[in-house]
Each structure stands twice: as C-alpha cells, then as structure tokens.
C-alpha cells in the first residue's frame, strides 16, 4: 500500500465529528481535528479501527506519524515543543497553500 503523503508534507486533520452522528470508534484525538501538521513518516498499513471495532470487514489504511506544534493547539506552552501522533490517511488532507 503506497502512502499518499511523503515525509515533510504539510497536512490538515479533517474537522470531522462522526461521533455526533452515532456510535463510532475513532483513533483521531479531538484536540487535533482541523489542525495542521507535518508528516514525519508512514508507519505501515493497518486494519481500519473504525470498522474493526464493530466487527465489520476492515480494509487496511496507511497510518502516519504526524508532527504538530503544541502552541497553536493549546494557545499555550513552549514554542519548541511538539506532539507526534498516529493518524490514519483517511483523516488527512493536504494543507492549504499559504
């Protein structure tokens, strides 16, 4: 399975809230929805937990380590500090050009 995003790509986590529509199992933390980060590297492909949790057929999805600056997420903290989080490809879009 070929990763869509190369290391160093700026990406945005989708601002989706499927938990508002009904029962679901999501591994994307709330505090990162809509946030911009940088792909550190692809970690491999894993069965989609959103299906796995409900015993549905679960296709494999590419999982990334994505790096986020802490300060924009919380509006506090040290500027050099970062968050490194596993995010599945279907939760990521290319970040808007600046």
């Amino acid at each position: 399975m070929t990763p869509a995003f190369a290391p160093g790509t700026r990406v945005r986590v989708k601002d989706h809230w499927p938990e508002r529509d009904g029962p679901c199992h999501i591994r994307t933390p709330h505090y990162l929805r809509g946030r911009e980060g940088v792909v550190d590297r692809a970690l491999g492909a894993f069965a989609n937990p959103e299906d796995l949790a409900f015993a549905r057929p679960a296709s494999k999805r590419v999982l990334y380590h994505v790096l986020f600056d802490q300060q924009p997420v919380w509006n506090e903290g040290a500027p050099q500090d970062k968050l490194l989080v596993e995010i599945f490809e279907h939760w990521l879009t290319p970040a808007e050009q600046h």
Binding site: P29, L43, P49, L67, A78, Q80, D81
Partner: peptide
C-alpha cells in the same frame, strides 16, 4: 532545559 524540544507521543493507534 528550555533549549530542548519536548516531543509528546500520543499513542493513539497501532504502534
């Protein structure tokens, strides 16, 4: 120290 970056790893998925 302040000149050291802290990386918090949120272990959210399969690793």
């Amino acid at each position: 120290p302040d000149d050291v970056e802290i990386r918090v790893i949120d272990s959210t998925a399969d690793y």
